[in-house]
Amino acid sequence: MPNSKNDRRDFLKGALVGTSVAMTSGVSTQALAADKAQANKTSSDSQGYIFFNLEEQEWIEKLVNHMIPADQLSPKGTDLGVHFYIDRALAGGWGKGDRLYQSGPWKKGLPTQGYQLPLTPANLYKVSIEQTNLYCQKKYGNKFSKLSPTQTEEFLIDLKDGKVSFADGPPAQVFFSMLYQNVMEGMFSDPIYGGNKDKAAWQMIGFPGAVATHALNVEKYFNKPYKAPIFGIGDLS
C-alpha cells in the first residue's frame, strides 16, 4: 500500500493507465481504501481538488512547498492550503475569465500593454504546467515534480527571469507572474478562500486581519509592537 500521498497518486495513475478493466475490479477498491485511510489520517485534506488533475496536483504541491518551505516561521505551502486556494481560484469565476476582456484579435503586444493571451487563467495553468514538464523533461530528464531541490530552485529562477521558453505555448514569464501572484494570494488572503490556514501567514508578519476598529490603537501602539488576537472573516461570521 502506498503510504505518501504522491505515491498513492502515482499508484492510482499507473493502475488506470495500465488497464481500463482494472477500474472496475480490485484497484478501485484499493483506491477507495487508500482514500479512506487518508481521510482518517487528517482532516486538512478534506477540501480536495476541484480543478487540477492528478498530474497537476503533484505539480502545484511541489511548487507551493518549494516556495513556502516549513520552518520556524510557518508550516509549508500545502499545510497552509495554498494549493487548494489556487485550485479553487482556477475552478471559480476568476479562473474562468471573469472581468477579463476576451475578444480578439490577439496580438503579442508590448510588456507595457499587459496580458494579451487568448487564455483564461485556468487555460493558462493547464497549458503552462504541461509545457514546464516538457521543458524539465528535456533539460533535467524529469518532470517538474521529480526535480531535486537544487534543480527546482534553478528552474523557478529561470522561469522568473524569462530564461525558460515553452516549445509550444504562451510566454513562460507571463505564466510565472500569474503563478507567483496566486501563491502570494493563497498565502496572505483570508482563510475563507482555502489558504492561510489558521491565519499562519498573518501570524508570521503580525497582520491582525479583519479588525473592527483601530481608532484608539493609533496612540496605544504608537511605535510599539501591536499585540491582539488575529481574526479572519470566518471567525466573525
Binding site: 472581468r99 494570494e185 488572503s189 483570508d190 486581519g209 479583519a210 471567525d235
Partner: peptide, 14 residues
C-alpha cells in the same frame, strides 16, 4: 463587517 475586510475580493479582484 466582517465581509468588507477582504483584500482579495476588493483590492485584488476589484
Amino acid at each position: 463587517l466582517p465581509n468588507i475586510r477582504d483584500e482579495l475580493r476588493y483590492t485584488i479582484r476589484q
